[in-house]
């Protein structure tokens, strides 16, 4: 669902009126938050999706947007001549931007490198589609107008970008792989070299299991996996690195 589709101007106005009444008619704070969360869920989803594809899982962005909405409830002044939806959208966007800029970088990375990494993330899907293959760093650098050395450094730094929520599910809009989880688990159980870590693989979140399977059994590239699962290539790279590290730790004495 998009804000422009299901969320028409009339329904937005009606919703703003309902919420405006709730702000002034003595509705308790808890009830008010409940009403706002229910009424503005489409706005939360719409804005979270606008910032998707920059290295964060959609589920995480929705949570951040939800927090932004609740902050908007706390900060909104109904006496000011501004509609709640306008105020909420600005607050949510602020929260999303702050989250992407600051909270996603577990190691402090210079802002310029963060910005280049985000540019790379945004450029990759179209560039890969145009070229019909994964682009080289020189090609990425040309496309986004940065130097090759800066792009390499930014992508390397992005490996520190680790707020991946390991329990996040697969994006509902993404195409579901044809194999069931049971079939995937069985393939790991029976495959030479994987059997030792098969119990640990069963403990992995569903998305991590599927990505591991797609890379090592279906031989899909990181870009292909990214497109299929609905996350960025850099995110797939980090998940593979973390997952292999997790499996390795289970083998250590």
């Amino acid at each position: 669902m998009t804000a422009s589709g299901a969320d028409t101007a009339n329904s937005r106005r009606d919703r703003d009126l309902r919420v405006a009444e709730a702000f002034v008619d003595g509705t308790s704070p808890a009830e008010l938050r409940e009403i706002v969360v229910r009424e503005y869920h489409p706005l939360v989803l719409y804005l979270a999706r606008r910032y998707f594809g920059r290295g964060e899982a959609l589920e995480d962005l929705v949570q951040v947007a939800q927090m932004g909405l609740l902050n908007a409830v706390d900060r909104f002044d109904p006496d000011r001549a501004v509609q709640f939806s306008t105020f909420a959208a600005a607050t949510i966007v602020g929260e999303l931007k702050r989250h992407l800029r600051d909270k996603c970088w577990s190691v402090r990375v210079p802002r310029r490198l963060q910005e280049i990494a985000l540019l790379v993330n945004r450029a990759l899907p179209e560039l890969s589609q145009t070229l019909g293959r994964s682009p080289s760093f020189a090609e990425i650098a040309t496309a986004i107008g940065e130097t090759e050395a800066d792009v390499i450094e930014a992508v390397d730094a992005a490996q520190a970008f680790t707020t991946t929520s390991l329990d996040a599910g697969i994006d509902d809009d993404a195409q579901a792989p044809s194999e069931t989880l049971g079939e995937i688990d069985m393939r790991f159980d029976l495959a030479t070299g994987w059997a030792d870590v098969a119990p640990a693989i069963r403990e992995l979140p569903e998305r991590e299991r599927r990505i591991l399977y797609m890379r090592f059994f279906e031989n899909k590239t990181q870009s292909e996996i990214a497109a299929e699962i609905g996350i960025s290539q850099m995110h797939v790279s980090r998940i593979l690195t973390q997952t292999l590290s997790t499996l390795r730790s289970t083998l250590e004495p």
Binding site: S134, V155, Q233
Partner: peptide
């Protein structure tokens, strides 16, 4: 590895593979 491989014609996917 990422720096050296990044300066070759290898695609970003393959550079990441090589790091792993």
């Amino acid at each position: 590895t990422a720096v050296v491989a990044g300066h070759t014609p290898l695609g970003i996917d393959r550079v990441d593979d090589l790091r792993l």
